[in-house]
Design a protein around this nucleic acid. Sequence first.
DNA 1: CTGAAAGCGCTTACAG
DNA 2: CTGAAAGCGCTTACAG
Lengths: 334, 334
Amino acid sequence: MKSLSIKDIATKANVSITTVSFIINGKAKEKSISEAVIDKVQKIIEESGYKPNQIARSLRTGNSNIIGLIIEDISNSFFSRIARLIEDKAYKKGYKIIYSSTENSVDKAKELINMFKSRKVDAYIISPIKGIEEDIQMLINDGNPVIFFDRNLPEISTSYVGADHFNASYQSIESFINQGKKNIALVTTDINVPQITERYDGYRKALEDHNIPYNDDLVLKIHFNQEEDETIGQIKELFNDKNIDAVLFATNYLAISGLKVLKKINKKIGADFSVIAYDDHEAFELHTPGISTVQQPLEEIAENVIMLILKQLSSKTKLEDQQIIIPAKLIIRE
Amino acid sequence: MKSLSIKDIATKANVSITTVSFIINGKAKEKSISEAVIDKVQKIIEESGYKPNQIARSLRTGNSNIIGLIIEDISNSFFSRIARLIEDKAYKKGYKIIYSSTENSVDKAKELINMFKSRKVDAYIISPIKGIEEDIQMLINDGNPVIFFDRNLPEISTSYVGADHFNASYQSIESFINQGKKNIALVTTDINVPQITERYDGYRKALEDHNIPYNDDLVLKIHFNQEEDETIGQIKELFNDKNIDAVLFATNYLAISGLKVLKKINKKIGADFSVIAYDDHEAFELHTPGISTVQQPLEEIAENVIMLILKQLSSKTKLEDQQIIIPAKLIIRE
DNA sequence: CTGAAAGCGCTTACAG
DNA sequence: CTGAAAGCGCTTACAG
């Protein structure tokens, strides 16, 4: 059973496909089609369940009503929650999302961009990685709306939405200091991207501003992509050997590993050992005692991303780039 | 800067677009195009960065190389992890995934199906909900490959991949009984779908087979979609009022709520109070003591789904439907 | 008030 | 060995 085309509808209604097209696209009034014809055609469309072929429409109009979303990994809850919010808001405006995960691979990211390009997506929402600057620049040069979120590429000038990682980190450390902590550790990753290095910078600056000497031994940079067992070993070493009284984990999965270590070495979180984790996780609320966290404003990030994209899509001209930095929230749990 | 078309390449190479098309599609040999021409054209394609317009290709060939994925909610980790695995495997075969969340709304699900239909997706992977039987049947009648996972609609005959919920539940209860438990509770939801009712059936059958009388008071059916506060209140009542010594939670989010209750009322999990949760969650491993879980075989589900879909896509004729039921795994933690 | 026709960028049966 | 042409299903400038 082949699906109906605009031609079938036109034949049934005894009008031209032009007329049907105008009616489908709400231009009937503007083109002064008679009420009688409009009614007749609409009834036939309804009865037959005809749906215009979007592929043909895309080919003709040059836009697809699809927004491409390129992220690191859809199964990471930060991204899947953002994806959900973006999908929701885009959907209401008639846009669909097509997503793909880069897995932090430059080659895959480049492939994805090409794939989206040949699919003529109307806009790109990207959490970028280093190494794809040229490809992104080409997209922008070709006039495609591109917006970064979560991560930024300083070399590329385009809109960006992300959390204020520096201040989030700064405030976490400050809260430790206000509790009288002296030996504050940072467990972070060795990926060299702004949203991670800013957390390090905030850590360092907070110490400095409060006259606490920086000690490189208290900063553990976990190799990205290594097995969790190894991570656990390194954190265990940090906890056992250094006399630390507080620790900030720069990502939630590092915090999960850290909590496993604490459980293993039977070290209790409490008055003389404080923990803050970056990015919330359901396990943190449930943990005894509850784990304090820095929460990224997911909803606001998604809202701003989609707002910027839709604004750009409905504008004929290229809008000015915007950098939207949203404060993170420190949630103290006991 | 408009992007290049096959015509541009043909002009540059001084050949017809037919020749270029054959070369792009690997039919050069078959159509006996000379080596010299092939080389020339390929060099030009490479240099110019030309990518064929997939939209035009889709319109012409009738397929899009896109698989539509319809799930309840991409931000739910079960679905996002499945989505990730499916994406991965589909990607390697040249298929892209376009996903959308139904949020358990029949209207939205119907809209999504129509949307995917007008986008001419090549196949549908659906975690279905009741109420869309007719729409799905139409898809199938039109010759579209449709595969269900996680949930099934008994009225529709199409392939299905899911975990063996009945046995997972049965074994959990049996493990309680083997520990000498007598008052075993079940906390589940009131959604009337097979993958939930099977868990109830497994609970009931296990009790029966071990001559333990069934007591309706020990089964708490939480209303789907209610606020967590209310859920927590109801679970608290169950734990306080009934003299239970073991509980199976039929979903991981119910278990999370349950653990919050235990924390609140200061009841310890141990020799005289056992817990098993359906579907793993990172919080469970971290919890003190660790929470035993029934784990759905995500990887195997995704593998089978994509295997069935790809098989169907590469076959000219409609293949026979398959029902693949995969055992779940009981992970005991202490 | 309505329609014939061009064209979006491809693929492919047919012809030579 | 290669190409002209039809056609996929739409939209829209133009004509009447």
